[in-house]
């Protein structure tokens, strides 16, 4: 275990260094600030997605579904579009970004606790039924989003584009000041409760028998997941399979059910893939936009592999 973390730590440092210095030319002050801001944003996203995915998989007692697959980020985009629709493009654009984000976060928390909280709380742990619900929610949220976007005035639509088309190499950095403390607070809470998650992973009945307040822990966990996914979606837009890729590797290298090492390794792996990958694709290969495609492709393969393995046994 110690060796695994040494290697992961080294790789993380290497990725971050590569991201900061590779292909840097010209004024160092400028480069450090410019790349540093982007690095912070990517690390935030990597951490948020890793922790959200692990907590979600624990709450649903499975290691295949992720918040994205269940439609959390599609819901976020829907809420954002609905806000533009209701407030109008001008009204939406004139809101301070922090206020906007806070508003979206509240709405998303309420909606996801209502939708997913009742679903999971009823002991809905059948993987394939959950998957089906996720697909239905995802399609529903996306088509509602599409409908609203068509009904929005084209001029007003442009204010949405910034957030809708954010991606790994076009990070929306305006929210960093707000996102940093939020992600840190969520991670601190998730870490503090790592022993609770160990028990929650056993499922509802065992968790109650062992004395947990199951409903409360479930709601806390879902709120964490929601806040983290909202943050990462605001920064880089929706990602489908990245979280799954990270969590699958992390379970594989730690081979434990203890959430302490799982959280640590998944955050490190997430940073390595995102920051290291961005360094290689953007700086070395000169293909900034393709990292997300490759990551999603690999994550998709992992998803298929895990599902097929489940079907066979």
């Amino acid at each position: 275990m110690a060796r695994t973390f040494c290697i992961l730590g080294l790789c993380t440092l290497l990725s971050i260094t590569a991201f900061m210095v590779l292909g840097a030319r010209g004024n160092w002050d400028f480069i450090l600030v410019f790349r540093g801001t982007k690095l912070v944003a990517l690390v935030l996203v990597a951490t948020a997605i890793a922790v959200a995915t692990i907590v979600f998989q624990t709450l649903t007692s499975n290691r295949i579904l992720t918040p994205s697959i269940m439609g959390f980020d599609a819901l976020y985009i829907l809420l954002q579009t609905a806000l533009v629709f209701i407030l109008g493009g001008f009204g939406f654009a004139s809101l301070a970004p922090e206020l906007k984000f806070a508003l979206e976060l509240c709405l998303l928390s309420a909606a996801s606790l209502a939708l997913f909280g009742s679903l999971i709380g009823q002991g809905m742990h059948d993987l394939f039924r959950m998957l089906l619900v996720g697909v239905v929610f995802g399609v529903l949220f996306r088509s509602l989003t599409g409908l609203l976007q068509r009904m929005i005035d084209p001029n007003e639509f442009s204010v949405l584009q910034g957030s809708l088309f954010a991606s790994f190499n076009k990070v929306d950095t305006t929210l960093i000041a707000l996102a940093t403390p939020l992600v840190l607070a969520c991670c601190a809470l998730a870490w503090h409760k790592r022993n609770v998650w160990d028990v929650m992973a056993l499922g509802r009945e065992q968790a109650i028998s062992l004395g947990l307040n199951y409903k409360r822990e479930l709601m806390v966990g879902l709120a964490l997941v929601t806040a983290l996914i909202a943050t990462s979606t605001a920064l880089v837009g929706p990602v489908a399979f990245f979280g799954l890729l990270v969590s699958a590797i992390s379970y594989e290298v730690t081979k434990t059910h203890h959430h302490g090492p799982i959280f640590l390794s998944s955050i490190l792996i997430s940073i390595i893939v995102l920051v290291g990958g961005q360094a290689i694709f953007e700086r070395v290969l000169g293909l900034g936009a393709t990292l997300s495609i490759v990551v999603e492709f690999l994550g998709g393969l992992v998803f298929l592999f895990l599902i097929l393995r489940r079907v066979r046994v």
Binding site: V196, A201, G203
Partner: peptide, 27 residues
């Protein structure tokens, strides 16, 4: 319970250890 299915990959020792959770809360 009559039918308990355990989703996570846990060793026998750790699973039995969970029985102690109400007493030590993880420590």
């Amino acid at each position: 319970r009559q039918d308990t299915h355990v989703a996570s990959r846990i060793t026998v020792q750790d699973m039995v250890g969970f029985g102690r959770f109400p007493h030590h809360q993880g420590r």
